[in-house]
Design a protein around this nucleic acid. Structure first.
Length: 473
DNA sequence: TTTTGAGTTGTTCGA
DNA sequence: GTCGAACAACTCAAA
């Protein structure tokens, strides 16, 4: 007698390299994949239409993938605890498998689901899939979690990495299970106006191949700094939604390593691997210190005095601050649901240190727009930018003009996202300041209908420093 | 226990 | 234009 088992998909929308899928198949070949649209998540204020749209498309691809294996992806809308218990009972399933998450909300939900299943005599199996090394596996010599990246990286990179999980063979369909067409974005109550990237496993594999199989990864150290270039992998939405497995990504870097000759290429490879490590570092931070979800890692900095001016916040959101690099970046976010990482740092520094607005406002806005929006990574990035996170030693205040001159020297990125300024001379895009040249640049921009800077960087950063130091004492 | 070395991504100044 | 030093001085991780 074969009993079916449920595989509960959440942020692992793929067949390849999926821990829970492999483990479920070892338990029973009659695997029923299921996804639950969680009303609580859909109704949250920081749920981005772009993210839901990407997820839906990934689910469509996943449904097609299962169809090719002869299986049916089942979906429900409601409370996962209720829905999974009902479905398992209905189908006579004796176990539910899923991949562990680190977010406080998810952990609490999963505990509830586990209890609700247990009450019905159904077992739960929680698998490790999200990271190369789950929280608790990377610890200092005294068994403490790391709070500084570099020692974490040294330990993390020295640990052996496991191979990708193969797609299980011989999966058996459950008879009489009919495929339900997935809901549309509108059915879920969302409208997405952003031009989001293609979702699904095939798209993810293609990006990985483009980045690691070509030469781009070998120039990453340099090209990642220039937002006008296609220097980054663009894998973030896929790692967010699990349309790509992390072990497979690591394996791709191992294959590159075998062919690397020059020292620069070797450095590029390691730098990119560090980015994978950063992803896990912030997940560890969230898992070990869940208070970061709502406040500063260094609690003293919850006392930082913010101005929180609504009009300035609106200008920042809309990309109308009068600082071209900041505005171009915000418009990229608004238009595409993605922003280059250097620009994320620039706009975050600007919101907190120039506009004196609480980093959590920016964090929330990012979550409302980002297709790759992830609590741990977004929160970690914002706390780092605000100087309240795990490693705030050097108080880095980005100068938006210096950053633009250094990383967009031809103004290519600025022109792409601020078309009203596209006809101007590069110096008119980049110059800022109170000298004659700065005044000329502002005049040129104003003639195009572009706003004057809403704040003076020099004045504001002084004020921020003052407040920051007041908290330190 | 104490000490030591070092810390993602900066900025500005002056040689 | 490029480079190195000063900035200011705290906290973590390991020896």
């Amino acid at each position: 007698m074969v009993f079916p088992v449920l595989l509960w998909h959440r942020r692992d929308l793929r067949l390849q390299d999926n821990a829970a899928l492999s483990e479920a198949a070892q338990h029973s070949l009659q695997v029923v994949p299921v996804f639950v649209f969680d009303r609580q998540i859909l109704e949250r204020l920081d749920t981005a239409p772009a993210r839901v749209a990407f997820m839906l498309q990934a689910l469509q691809r996943l449904q097609e993938g299962y169809r090719q294996l002869g299986l049916t992806l089942v979906w429900r809308l409601g409370d996962p605890g209720v829905e999974l218990q009902q479905l398992a009972t209905e189908l006579g399933a004796q176990a539910v498998f899923w991949n562990e998450d680190v977010e406080p909300f998810a952990r609490q939900r999963d505990r509830r689901v586990q209890e609700s299943l247990a009450a019905a005599g159904i077992r739960s199996f929680v698998c490790q899939d999200l990271m190369l090394h789950p929280a608790g596996e990377v610890l200092t010599q005294t068994g403490e979690p790391y709070s500084v990246f570099t020692p974490f990286w040294r330990r993390w990179s020295s640990l052996p990495k496991r191979d990708p999980y193969p797609v299980p063979k011989g999966l058996q369909p459950l008879p009489n299970l009919e495929e339900q067409p997935l809901p549309s974005l509108a059915d879920l109550g969302f409208v997405c106006t952003q031009e989001i990237p293609a979702a699904g496993e095939a798209a993810a594999q293609q990006l990985l191949e483009d980045f690691c199989g070509g030469l781009r990864i070998l120039d990453y150290e340099r090209s990642r700094n220039f937002p006008a270039e296609e220097g980054t992998s663009r894998l973030s939405p896929h790692l967010r939604w699990g349309t790509l497995g992390i072990r497979q990504v690591w394996q791709a870097t191992v294959e590159v390593e075998a062919e690397v000759r020059s020292e620069e290429a070797q450095a590029s490879l390691q730098t990119w691997r560090q980015e994978l490590c950063w992803r896990e570092f912030y997940k560890h931070v969230l898992a070990h210190w869940p208070h970061v979800e709502t406040g500063a890692y260094r609690r003293a900095f919850d006392a930082l005095a913010w101005d929180n001016r609504q009009d300035w916040f609106q200008a920042w959101c809309a990309g109308e601050t009068g600082y071209p690099m900041v505005d171009a970046a915000m418009r990229q976010l608004n238009q595409t649901g993605w922003m280059h990482n250097r620009c994320r740092m620039i706009v975050a520094s600007f919101l907190t240190k120039d506009l004196l607005i609480d980093w959590r406002w920016g964090e929330r806005y990012f979550m409302q727009k980002l297709v790759d929006g992830d609590l741990a990574a977004n929160n970690g990035g914002w706390q780092w930018s605000a100087g309240v996170g795990t490693d705030p030693k050097p108080l880095r205040i980005f100068n938006p003009a210096t950053q633009a001159a250094r990383y967009d020297p031809e103004g290519e990125y600025i022109r792409r996202y601020l078309p009203e300024l596209a006809g101007l001379d590069t110096s008119a895009l980049l110059w800022v300041g109170d000298d004659a040249k700065g005044a000329w640049a502002l005049q040129e921009r104003r003639a195009c209908g572009y706003p004057a800077p809403i704040v003076d960087h020099k004045v504001q950063q002084q004020e921020f420093k003052r407040r920051y130091q007041a908290v330190q004492r």
